[in-house]
Computed example of a mutant assay.
Amino acid sequence: MDRWQAMRIFARVAETESFAEAARHMHMSAPAVTRAVAALEDLIGARLFVRTTRSVKLTEAGIRYFDDCRRILADIAEAEAAAGGSYATPTGTLAITASALFGQIYVLPIVTEFLNTYPAMHARTLFIDRPVNIVEEGMDVAVRIGHLRDSGFAAIRVGTVRHVICGSPQYLETHGVPAVPADLKSHRIAASTSAWASPEWRFADDHRVTIDPVLQCNTNEAAISLARAGWGLTRVLHYQIGSALLAGELKIVLSDYEEPPMPIHILHPQGRNAPAKVRAFVDMAAARLRGNRLLN
């Protein structure tokens, strides 16, 4: 039995939770997949799956073996890629994740520039406002806003973002510019629940104001559009209003009371062993984000 091939078959069955689906993915017959897994179980001396007529689930031993298989198969793929030269030339598909609006505004242009620079490359993006498990969801690179936990991933700091309060020049001319955080109580507020769910807005030097928003919006874009239209003030991350600031459509207020900015990092799990596609993209993304004056 080809041990490496059997491990690949086992891993695909574990991923798909189906012998038939694994067979289709690997262009094999279902009986051949079943025999390979059975031979592997005999060799190991443990059951790897619990099989019923409706499901295929890993046993406790299977879960442990699956983790080891993924690591071993990844090491083999890495060795083959290095020998084949993909560590010298970007090839394959690159998967990038970031928060939804940041990804759309700042990361996507870098992705398209990367694809234009390396025509043989493909890419997929996951721009979403939820925690993404980089390894489990198959991401090569992540752009993260906020302070990082110690994950063991390579991390490159490329900028900062601030929580800011903003309004249109017309609104501020009509209703006045708040001088201290407490002045917000006399202003009309459109709050974005996706960006700042708490009614308590915090500022530097432990200033805190409990906000009673006239309107709560479930997206940042909606709250920003109201502020641009002169309807009221809102609080967002400053990168989200970059174009409006440059166009003079919005102004930031209470900047002297802002909390310390949050860092932006580019993460990737491979570290120094990253293939060329990751290294090339990270280098390009770091240069572009560091060069963006709205993020620094």
Rank of each mutant, 00 (worst) to 15 (best):
Y257L: 07
Y257F: 14
Y257S: 06
Y257M: 08
E258D: 10
E258Y: 06
E258F: 05
E258M: 12
E259V: 11
E259Y: 07
E259Q: 14
P260W: 00
P260T: 08
P261W: 01
P261F: 03
P261L: 06
M262P: 01
M262N: 12
M262C: 10
P263I: 07
P263D: 06
I264G: 03
I264Q: 02
H265A: 10
H265Y: 14
I266E: 01
I266H: 01
I266T: 05
L267N: 04
H268W: 08
P269H: 09
P269A: 11
P269L: 08
Q270M: 13
Q270K: 12
Q270F: 13
G271L: 06
G271I: 05
R272H: 14
R272M: 12
R272Y: 13
N273K: 13
N273C: 11
A274Q: 00
A274C: 09
P275D: 08
A276I: 00
A276C: 08
A276L: 02
A276D: 07
K277M: 10
K277R: 15
V278R: 01
V278P: 06
R279S: 08
R279T: 11
R279L: 07
R279V: 02
A280T: 00
A280M: 01
F281N: 05
F281L: 00
V282D: 04
V282C: 10
D283I: 02
D283G: 15
D283Q: 14
M284W: 04
M284H: 01
M284I: 11
A285N: 04
A285I: 05
A286I: 08
A286V: 10
A286L: 01
A287M: 09
R288P: 02
R288V: 15
R288M: 09
R288N: 09
L289G: 02
L289W: 04
L289P: 06
R290P: 00
R290E: 09
R290Q: 15
R290W: 07
R290I: 11
R290D: 04
G291H: 05
G291T: 13
G291M: 09
G291R: 03
G291V: 12
G291P: 03
G291Y: 01
N292Y: 04
N292S: 11
N292D: 15
N292V: 10
N292I: 08
R293E: 15
R293A: 15
R293C: 10
L294V: 10
L294P: 02
L295E: 05
N296A: 14
N296S: 13
N296Q: 14
N296E: 12
